[in-house]
Structures are given as structure tokens and as C-alpha cells.
Design a protein around this nucleic acid. Sequence first.
DNA 1: CTAGGGTTAG
Length: 607
Amino acid sequence: MQIQSIKTKIVRTVGVAGAGTGTGNKRAAEQSCLSLLEACDALAKFVQLQARILKLGLQNNPLVLTKFAAVSSDLDAVDYASSFVFSSDADYRLYDAFLFNTVIRAYAQTGDLKEKALALYNAMVGYGVSPNKFTYPFVLKACAGLGRLSLGQTVHGSAVKFGFDDDAHVRNTMIHMYCCCGGGVEYARSLFDEMPKRDSVSWSAMIGGYVRLGLSTEAVELFRKMQIAGARPDEITMVSVLSACTDLGALELGKWVESYIEREGIQKNVELCNALIDMFAKCGDVEKAMKLFRNMSRKTIVSWTSVTVGLAMHGRGSEAVSLFEEMIRNGTAPDNVAFIGLLSACSHSGLVEKGKGYFSSMTKEYQIVPKIEHYGCMVDMLCRAGLVNEAMAFVRKMSIEPNPVILRTLVSACRAHGELKLGESISKSLISNEPMHESNYVLLSNIYAKMSLWEKKTKIRQIMDKKGMRKTPGSTMIELNNEIYEFVAGDKSLKQYKEVYEMVDEIAREMKRAGYVPSTTEVLLDIDEEDKEDALNRHSEKLAIAFALLYTPPGTPIRIVKNLRVCSDCHSATKFISRIYSREIVVRDRNRFHLFKDGLCSCKDFW
DNA sequence: CTAGGGTTAG
């Protein structure tokens, strides 16, 4: 069919090119070679062409090389072109910005060849070839991908020198670059603010930059400014805004964004739908996420994975498993990310045998080489099930070295299941490898607490103080009347703090009457015991719940978002509160959801 | 020949 006709065209062109050499007519040969390359686009087969270019002596011809690099996503062709640019007999006076741009673009777009793009840029500058306005976006994108701030700044300087820094594309990519390189956001923001005219790409670059850095509040704020400025967001802007909502766990805001998308008639492409699904699932409304998913006309592996992960987070492991099976029946092959979602679903729901089965089918049937994340899921799964020895054996058998994440999982399982000596020794090696990682110390300190070695425990605290390390304070977020409130333990910054503290005390009395016993013995992963003893009742979570009980209508569900894992005392207290005050309480943890209802939690105390 | 976006273990 079409391929056939292209082949014919090529054969015919090759004939002409050959004729060109025969008569010694370089010009004709060049022309023929160019049309030949044009025709080759669809076939992407360059091997014969390489030979022909050499035979015709066109390897140094910039037009031919440019074309060669441009016609295909085939990196072999690009490598071939760049090899001539770098070859010792290269006549760089022949090469222009266009040739470099073409090759740089190809490298900048790939996952791991961005270094080559930068090398070509350096070569270009070294040859004295002036970049043009197309060069900068390519190069800056590569700098962004690699986090190369200082090179990015040099490139910026060059753009200024040649007068291209006011070009909208260049400026937007510059913002993107500064956002992607550590320490550059503020500068990006100043570039953004100084722009005389901002288009939707500028706004998206800046908002997306904030989101990537975890500055979701700033992202949302900037989106508000965008509306005030009257700029029209597109679907790409909205993806970033939604992912800010996801990060914050701000369901109300997310819902508002959804209605905004509808109202403004922003095109809901697959990526935007995926972002919506992810937002609803991670903000606590899996049902809605499922509904959106079911209504999507075209689904990608990302859509399937997002719902699977969503179900997993809500402890609905067996549904996640069926969805995964449905995906396969539908003809979508799982990739390594889909398996991470699936395995973590098994892990969170205690489906140990299923998880083991999938892990082996992943490697055998799908030939996916397990990554550290897959091993991590397996270790976590075994540890949660209390199979610490099996987990240890599994880690020894792994084909990759366990990373600190896996070792910390083991340590906390050791603590929970009484393997204290083992936990202590792993913990110590963790500390010597990562002396500035706070949770390594907290884990060891918790082990000493369990061993009743109070002096050693105190000593750890002193070491941390000496190193100037501070634990991440626990905080809890809640949305109320379009406001986001954030509580930290012992917080008194809120206007109504007196009422809230009175309410906390009242709740404590009611809970005691109902049989609640404060538990200061069980400590979870990142939480230090002393803080619990100090202020169990002042935990940010309890403050937020008290606030919600005070200021939301009776009977309405309460949704809160924690930045750490919920501690076991708060967990049992929240169960009591849900029953005493007849409220559904949805808590989003650092890694999953808890739905408290009638004195029980959806996680079945397994988390 | 140019820019901004989506799923990932604890």
C-alpha cells in the first residue's frame, strides 16, 4: 500500500542519485539524496542510506546531514549525523544553527540522551556557530531535564547576548528550566513577573513548576492570579492545577476545578481525565474516580493504573486486583508501573499469596525486570503480614542491593514483631550510611523504647540535636467554606483556638467515658514517643477533628489530610469519635486512606 | 526546526 509506493519512490530516487555521482554532478547528487531522505521518513530504515551518503561523498554536506537527522525519530540517524559533526575532518564552517538544532532537538526529546544535546550545544558554541531562537528552547529543555542550573544560566546569558531572551518560547522555557533546577524557582518567578505579556504556556510553566516542587499552595494561588489576570488556562494548565489539588488532598477545591473545566469548555483529553481520576481517588472519592474512569472513551495504561492505585489506597485490594485483570482482558499489557500499583494493592490488603503469584508472573510472563520498587512492595507485603524472617530471606535473595527504604521497612517490622536485635543492627548501619536522614534515628529510638533502653534512646535524641536535625512536625489539613486550614500539634495560631482546645478536652472526656484508653506505648514509623507523651491530645489530627465538629453541621462527613502516617493513638481515638459523634471521618494518611464509621476503620487496623 | 502536562514501593 502506502509503504510500497514509498519504496518505489525510493528506488526511483536512488537511481537518480546514482546517476548524479556517475556524471560527477554533486549538486544533482545532493538533491537526489535529499528527496531520498524525504521518502525515507515513513520507513525509518537508514542503513542503506548511510552507505549511499558515504558513497556519494555527502557525509559532510550540512543539508544532507540535517535532513538525515530530521526525518526520523530513529536515533541511529541522529547519532550518525552528530558523528560527522564531531569527526576530526569535520568542516564546521559548513554547519549552521539549523543542523545543530535538528540534532539537539532529537537528543533533548529522549529520556537519557540529554547530555548529548548539551554536548552538541557546547560544540556549536565552540565552532562559533551562533544559536538562533529555536536553539534555546531545545537546550534549556535539556538543562531542565538534567537539573543543570549553571549551564542553564550560561545559556540564558547567551540568549540575552543574541537578543532572544524576549522571545515568548525562549522565555517560557527559561521559566521551566529555572523551576526544574534546584534553587531556581524564585528566579523563575521573577522572570515570570517581569514578562510584559504572559500566555497560557507561561502560566502553566510556572504553576507546573510549583507543583513539581511540592509548592501546591503557591500553585493554587498563582492559578487564582491567572484568573484575575484574565488569562485563559488550557487543558495543560488544568492538569497542573489538579495535581496541586491532589497533593493537598483538597477535594472541595478539586471539585470546583472540575466544574470550572466544564464551565469553561476546556477540552477533556485523556491526560486531563487521568488527572481528574487521580485527584478524586487521592482526595478520597474513589467512587467518583471509578465513574469517570468508566465513562472514558479512550483509556491509557495511566488511566488503569491511576484507578488501581486509588483503590489500593482505600484498602480495596481485591477490587484493584479485579481491575488489573480486566485491564489485561481488555488487551492492555501491564507495564512496570501497573505492577507497582497492583503489588502495593496486595500489600495493603494482606493478599500475600496473590502478590507472590503476580510478582512471579510479572517476571516470567511479562518479562518485566523487577525494579527496586517492586521488591519494596514485596518486602512491605511480607512485613505487614508479620513474616519478618521471610522478608529478610527475600531481601538476601534480591538481585539488587536493598535501598534505605526497604531497610527501613524491615526495621519497623523488626520492632513490631520483636526482632529487636536485628532491627537495632540494621538501623545502625542505616544511620552510618545516611547520617542526616531523620527517620533512621526515629526508628532506632523507637526500638530502644521497645527494649526499655531509655538512656540509649535519650542519647539518640541528643545526637539529633547536635546535628541540628528536627523531626518533620505533624500537620493536618482541613477544608471549610473554601478555606484551607492547617493544624500543627499544639497550634494556637487559629483565631478560634480557645474553642478548639475546649472541644478537644470535651472529646477526651467523652471518649474516656466510652472506654478509650490513651496509648502512649505504641509508636508508629516517624513519630517520636516523647511528643506523644507531651501532647497526645494536642496532635494536629485531634485539633482538626475538634475544629470540624465545632464548625460543620452535625452528621456531615469530616475529611482531613495528614502529612505523616496516622499514629495509633489517633487511630483508636478517631474510631471512638466517629461513634460518639455519629460522623464519618475520612483521613488521608501519608500513604493511604482510613474511613472511620461507627467506631470502626476501613483499614481494619491493618496499615 | 521552538515552550508548559498524566500513573510509581515506605
